[in-house]
Nucleic acid binder design. Structure first.
Ligand SMILES: [Zn+2]
Ligand SMILES: [Zn+2]
Ligand SMILES: [Zn+2]
Ligand SMILES: [Zn+2]
Lengths: 142, 142
DNA sequence: CATCTGGATGGAAACCATTTTCATTTAGGA
DNA sequence: TCCTAAATGAAAATGGTTTCCATCCAGATG
């Protein structure tokens, strides 16, 4: 079943523009997490004019709306990933081939009790080398 | 029992310099996580000449050595925190008053088994408002 | 204590991913 | 078809962080 990108955008009260649809398509097609710059490059194949700020803005809005996920890379650059798994979970990301695997653990529920305050956001992410990259002897990219 | 900063530095094969000792003292004294800029400001009260790059370098080395902890702020700036708890754990950080609370949950041990690859690093952090800030009606800072 | 050496440091400049500004275009409803 | 707020592009600014390199100093050696 294909993704209904227009509906996703409407639910976030975002206008359904060709650039946003192409951005979602690019992410959903990618097998790895990608940088804003890379999304921009790819969209340049579809649009004669496409600005980098637009890509940044749209990726941020989509991530804020939960449609896509941010990947916090140790190099402190920002990457994005479209995960078809709609339930709450976290990720293991490979620093060599950029593949993403779902993690089921979370433990956030206990945290709210422990803290007593309000948890506004939380990060749970494992970084490393996937099995394939480990066996192939590949190393973490910069 | 006071902290033995010289020994900490020696264990990391770092020279025991006045600036490094002062950096550790500043962090250990602070009740909140602090930015490199803030550490720099504080050290300016002790040293006539203290460069920002030195502060960045030393904080990074100390964090790499596990003596201090990085706080990944949603605003994507980097902060550091000296946690006296030497065992493996994670943090809840208040976005209003910057206090830090230890979290006991982790569960990342099993992740490596799940993944089959190698976990090089992992992030587990909850962000929000501590109980005090929540009751006082304070809001998350930029 | 004098000497030596590689690590540590400061200042200035570079870096560069990301954001802001603002004029123009467009989606979507009236 | 019109209208208006949202979306966009180009250019410029931003600013946290890093690099460069000459100088300094911690710590080892004799
Ligand atoms: Zn991999
Ligand atoms: Zn996922
Ligand atoms: Zn607080
Ligand atoms: Zn702690």
């Amino acid at each position: 079943m294909p993704h209904d990108f227009p509906s996703m955008l409407k639910e976030l009260h975002l206008k359904v523009t060709p650039r946003r649809l192409a951005t979602l398509a690019a992410l959903a097609t990618a097998t790895t997490y990608v940088s804003p710059e890379e999304v921009h490059k790819r969209l340049q194949g579809e649009f004669a004019r496409i600005g980098l700020p637009t890509v940044y803005r749209n990726l941020e809005e989509l991530a804020a709306g939960g449609v896509i996920t941010k990947v916090l890379h140790p190099n402190r650059q920002l990457y994005y990933y479209f995960c078809p798994n709609r339930s709450h979970h976290h990720h293991f990301v490979c620093l060599a081939c950029r593949t993403v695997e779902d993690l089921e653990c979370c433990g956030l529920e206990e945290v709210e009790k422990q803290v007593g305050g309000r948890v506004l956001s939380h990060i749970v992410q494992a970084n490393g080398l996937c099995q394939a990259c480990l066996q192939a002897g590949r190393e973490a990219a910069a």
